[in-house]
Nucleic acid binder design. Sequence first.
DNA 1: GAAAACACCGAAAAGGCTTTATGTGACCCT
DNA 2: AGGGTCACATAAAGCCTTTTCGGTGTTTTC
Lengths: 353, 353
Amino acid sequence: MLHTEDRSQDTMNDGAAPLKGRKATLSDVARLAGVSVATASKALNGRSQVRAETRARVEEAAEQLSFSPNALARGLLAGRTGTVGLLTSDLEGRFSIPILMGAEDAFGAGKVAVFLCDARGDSIREQHHVRALLGRRVDGLIVVGSRTDPRPSLGRDLPVPVVYVYAPSEDPEDLSIIVDNVGAGRQAIEHLISCGRTRIAHISGDPTYGASQERAQGAREALAARGLELIGDVRFGSWTEGWGRAAASMLLAQHPEVDAILCGSDQVARGVMDVLREQDRKIPDDVAVMGFDNWEIFTSHSRPPLTSIDMNFERLGRVAAQRLFAAIDGKPASGVEALDTRVVIRGSTAPGH
Amino acid sequence: MLHTEDRSQDTMNDGAAPLKGRKATLSDVARLAGVSVATASKALNGRSQVRAETRARVEEAAEQLSFSPNALARGLLAGRTGTVGLLTSDLEGRFSIPILMGAEDAFGAGKVAVFLCDARGDSIREQHHVRALLGRRVDGLIVVGSRTDPRPSLGRDLPVPVVYVYAPSEDPEDLSIIVDNVGAGRQAIEHLISCGRTRIAHISGDPTYGASQERAQGAREALAARGLELIGDVRFGSWTEGWGRAAASMLLAQHPEVDAILCGSDQVARGVMDVLREQDRKIPDDVAVMGFDNWEIFTSHSRPPLTSIDMNFERLGRVAAQRLFAAIDGKPASGVEALDTRVVIRGSTAPGH
DNA sequence: GAAAACACCGAAAAGGCTTTATGTGACCCT
DNA sequence: AGGGTCACATAAAGCCTTTTCGGTGTTTTC
């Protein structure tokens, strides 16, 4: 049912309700308070050139009219809009969201609003969005990639600072905030070793992802530091449960002595655990299992709950926001900043967790 | 070294920082083209009062300066900003994202930019965001709930139209776009029946969710229409695999004759399938299994792939965006609009899929 | 008692754009 | 030739806020 009543020019409001942006302008407030707009502005912005009594009158008038200053006019004058663009190439993916949440959180704490744009992996669309955002005079841009491999830079001649997150920019002059995947691999192995495991295998994911190569490298490094080696080298495949099952079957057949399996993702780990259970290998007593990503939906509900490496995505987003703030304030940075990860221990490596 | 002057958190940034890419303004374009700003404006906006040759000159000048009009100034004048606020109460959840994608898509196709705000389920934070968005003079608001139960209205006296998605507003005067959960339950049962099943059980999720009650109701209706009943009535629990496993064990013990299990979510279905496999019941030959949500990550990688009801979230977001457009254009609507769902058939009900 | 200091307020400009109203010349008609 | 129409260009008036600068009236200082 449609009704055509016009809600936009409403009746007078008593000012009791808190949320009414409405059309009240600063001159309305000034008129009601019996002062000039200049004085009203100063009063509301805490400038010093206003008598306390006058300020109070203005504030009351503003309250009564539910005045809220027009951010457009303010931004037009200030040259700063207090907005940033958040450009993601893949909202659907699991990784953009927490990053986005972290960034939104950090900005919302300040007085910055976030324009969200999803390029859907299309660079034409991305260009279009960048242009639109610049037209809106955002103060800065955050670009979130969909995988960890380097991506093309937006260019050096943008009028606003840019921070790349998750996927670094190909241009080292840009500032990129990424996950330390080598460190993540190292951390994982160190945890397994400290659980007393020595015959460790690594079932990874898609080999075309930089992340899987880097994690494998970190894992090898950590093993080498103890004079150990991977059992049966790294097995690459895809990021799926199916691959986890297939790879686990082969691994157990070829190397039944294995006492820990590091998996490329929680989904892979899930498949691996299914096979272990079917073959009556106790987790973690016979074989410890570990994943990457700490994807709650998989880690908490598996049997037993899965130990995993958390990528701290929210922090990634928050740090990106902070760096962008700094750049906007005239303190730019460049290079690649790799943030560390964190082991979340559950029952698949530590009984009782 | 840049000045380390008092760059206090305020706007006292007196242009000391070298803003390198100062954006070209319309007067720059006009000067370069040798016309007045008024003419330049009309030329670039396709107004009629401009000679073709003049228009070409202006366009070339604009191109040369890579001019893009300042959306702030334009919005200030027009009273419309071409922005909307997207207020979600829970970004983390699985449902907001596709809705958000649909909306972003629909708006991006027009010339509307989206402010994203996450209230994190906190109504104080929500109020704060609403106020901030109104200060930025958004043209409209979309409010995305985190569960399907009705939520408090933002109020009738907002200066801009609002569309509620997923969770309807408690106020029937508001416009809400939701999923037809009763219809979804009906659809599911009809599919199972058309697969030849008659002894159907329903393992649902958290009973405090309206969605689970409504789906159960739809399921009962569809069964009643064929003179059938649920085996062992609805079993409520939580939306987890663990509950799926527990409930399936009990169900199979009490009603071994069951030939289909409708599950409250794909995760529940996942648990149910684990138990069926452990008890050597063939899926779908002995027992068909079905879920709700069509969460790819669960449906595609289970054994066999899981038939599920897709909620069409992207369409939900797109429709919400369209309704908001209409309302902004002065064609408001109210009431609750329930969109239908869709069965995605896979191997867990239909062999060979 | 005059000069300076001070506290407070208002007029006005600026910021970039669109639109209205006004102005100018070219052209056509009787 | 004068009046009218038409096509085009421009000046100027906003939109809403912040900030600078100038102007009161009052107080302090020597």
